[in-house]
């Protein structure tokens, strides 16, 4: 009887001590979490109104380059007939191409070659057409589209707006 109670107490003690350990673990996990200021900086707002057609703009969002191209030269988007149109976003009265400027092969940053109207990745020679669809070399898929939301003529990167959901088929 007395022995049982001692064991019970021992278990209560052990359990309670374990609870404290869990709480401490939680604190440690939280300390590793990104800071609130870092999370808040995860959104980038770009005003698209001053852009010129055919002009490529590179902005950074979460440390990644984002390519924005107003009215991409569509004649050089011939790979998949429907694909290019699906990749365009309408903001105001123009179409824009918005995508993460990282090669889908191994993550190099492709360069836009305005005269050839292609994106060229110097790392392993990958190429993308003016709509960011892979046309040559090792890249396995078109350049990715970052989550965005449209607010008037502004583009907010990092938030999933209805246009984004429609684009990637999440709606």
């Amino acid at each position: 009887m007395a022995k049982d109670r001692r064991d019970f107490l021992g278990m209560v003690f052990g359990g309670f001590a374990g609870l404290g350990g869990l709480a401490a673990l939680y604190a440690m996990k939280r300390t590793w979490d990104p800071l609130p200021s870092v999370m808040a900086a995860g959104f980038t707002t770009v005003d698209l109104s001053p852009m010129k057609p055919g002009e490529l703009r590179t902005v950074t969002w979460r440390g990644k380059p984002i390519f924005i191209l107003k009215k991409p030269p569509m004649d050089n988007c011939k790979t998949i007939p429907d694909e290019p149109k699906k990749r365009l976003v309408k903001v105001g009265d123009s179409d824009y191409l918005v995508m993460i400027g990282l090669c889908t092969h191994l993550g190099c940053i492709p360069t836009w070659e305005p005269d050839k109207k292609i994106f060229h990745c110097a790392c392993h020679g990958g190429e993308y057409d003016a709509c960011g669809v892979n046309t040559f070399g090792p890249p396995p898929r078109p350049m990715d589209i970052p989550p965005f939301k449209i607010e008037g003529t502004k583009l907010v990167l990092g938030e999933e707006g209805p246009e984004y959901k429609k684009l990637v088929g999440k709606a």
Partner: peptide, 17 residues
């Protein structure tokens, strides 16, 4: 990935940890 890096990309918090 974000948790390990402490940011969306490798940066100062990643280096310090």
């Amino acid at each position: 990935v974000i948790w390990i890096r402490g940011n969306f990309y490798v940066s100062d918090p990643t280096l310090t940890r």
